[in-house]
Design a protein around this nucleic acid. Sequence first.
DNA 1: GACATTCATAGCAAAAGCTCATGAATTGAT
DNA 2: ATCAATTCATGAGCTTTTGCTATGAATGTC
Lengths: 303, 303
Amino acid sequence: MNVTLRQLRVFTGVYRTRSITRAARELGITQSAASLLIQQLEAQLGVKLFDRSTRSVQPTLAAGEAFAAAERMLSDAQGLSRRMRDLAQARAGRVVFLASAGTASALLPMVLAKFRASHPDIEIDMRDVAADDLVPRLSTTDAEFAIGSAEGEFADMTIETLTSGRLSAIGRRTADFAARRSLTWDELAQLPTIAMRSETRIRMQIDQALSAQGKRLDPTYEVTLINTALAMTAQGLGLAILPATMLPADQFSTLIARPLVRPALTRPVSLLQRQGRTLSPAAQAFVATARMVLAGRTAQASG
Amino acid sequence: MNVTLRQLRVFTGVYRTRSITRAARELGITQSAASLLIQQLEAQLGVKLFDRSTRSVQPTLAAGEAFAAAERMLSDAQGLSRRMRDLAQARAGRVVFLASAGTASALLPMVLAKFRASHPDIEIDMRDVAADDLVPRLSTTDAEFAIGSAEGEFADMTIETLTSGRLSAIGRRTADFAARRSLTWDELAQLPTIAMRSETRIRMQIDQALSAQGKRLDPTYEVTLINTALAMTAQGLGLAILPATMLPADQFSTLIARPLVRPALTRPVSLLQRQGRTLSPAAQAFVATARMVLAGRTAQASG
DNA sequence: GACATTCATAGCAAAAGCTCATGAATTGAT
DNA sequence: ATCAATTCATGAGCTTTTGCTATGAATGTC
């Protein structure tokens, strides 16, 4: 057999109180059990730890040394328990995840804000990544999950759609524009438009879908960052061609989105997880927040 | 129940090997036992530690954190065991003891030398103390035992005589002196003598014994340190009046001791221990060495 | 000298731990 | 595609450990 923490607990108790009886009481066991545990410990260490008579319990020199080590181990044990409990309750920890660039800039800030409010001590490591890299990176890095637009099936991956936004024209709330329920892609040809560069995923999806119908988007401006497009739109330079989800209502209160139809295109925002891997409690909490916030957002956008 | 080292041992094994089966083999238990222990640990910490399928055992993030703590505790446990074993075998440790000034300077150096040869890693803390302080200091300080001349009975003290020396005249090995078997105290009156100061214990014993017989020692020189007396004797300044045991043969090869008689006085060198207190293994080893060396010395002095 | 306190030990009951046997899932080979 | 092999989980049964109660021995107190 080997030394046990139980023995050490009794040992430190006896060392401190100089009494087996008192230590036993502290630990909620009987004196005889404590006595036995001390004897076991002595036997296992091969050292006399206490000079005991019926009247006194004097620690030996060896006990003094052992005490320090024992205390350390016990406090480590307690620290471990506490730390794990904190992790379990998502009161501590770290969430490492991937986000596609668009999601990271437009959608996740509000999730982050909400999450930080409810879980102030959790460290967040959001890594923004090109949409194409989402899946490969998730398999190889230590990120626990990924949020972004990924479609299709992937081996060893779970995909769950958190929200999806219809491809929309985003413009200033003018009487004209606000009156529209939707716009067709064809109508856009007449108007100044701001779209994402053709290297971006959003744009590729648009171009593919349109060309399948023999159509083509000919934007007035092409930009890389979603925020740039929105800022330009707010300045009245044109309509931004983006999923409705990408419009942060709180940041651009003057802008509204109107779905584009013929064809109607939707762009999902998905949660990717590695199959068979449990998320850390902190990550679970974060994902829950994301689901909540984004679900709310879908309702908003559609209403 | 609480976390046990047993669980942690299995845990670290599984963490390292990424396999319950392999870890179980390493620890010499069955796979099912290991599986159970991991489940227990998870339950107690409230955290999932491994994502297990029949094919793989992947540590979670929490496991990574727990691993560090677990390893530390286990290595502490091992360190504790090893350290205690070393202490038990007197391969490590520290001996704290008291020695009366005379013993410390004349008798113990050779004990120390011998002990150091056989137990090189044991630290020695010898505290020299006035003979009167021997007993009071032993009760109050952390010294484990004391060596010196103490006579009588003391509460809670064990006294064991290690050796005893007859009060002798110590002088240079001249033909005259060497021829003598002994000297009487009366004869000393005619000769130049070097004695300890009257505050010292040795001197007090002498004065007391002689005055009981209506005699009196009238030394030519009085000194405080035994070594001084011997050095003076070696210079031919007179005969040193000391217990024969106080003559270190190796240091003063020119000197010899001849017992004083009428009355013949002996001065014990004793080992004092606190009753009911176990000596540390290191101290036991030291005491054993002292017994051996000093017993040998008695034989030498008497032969 | 009676009393109270404290540690040790023995007997017994309860709990925990381990092994064996078996089942389910998954991988790799034929 | 089926079969064999590997791996983890689970349940039954046995062994060991643990803890409690009761009692004894020693020691200090009034």
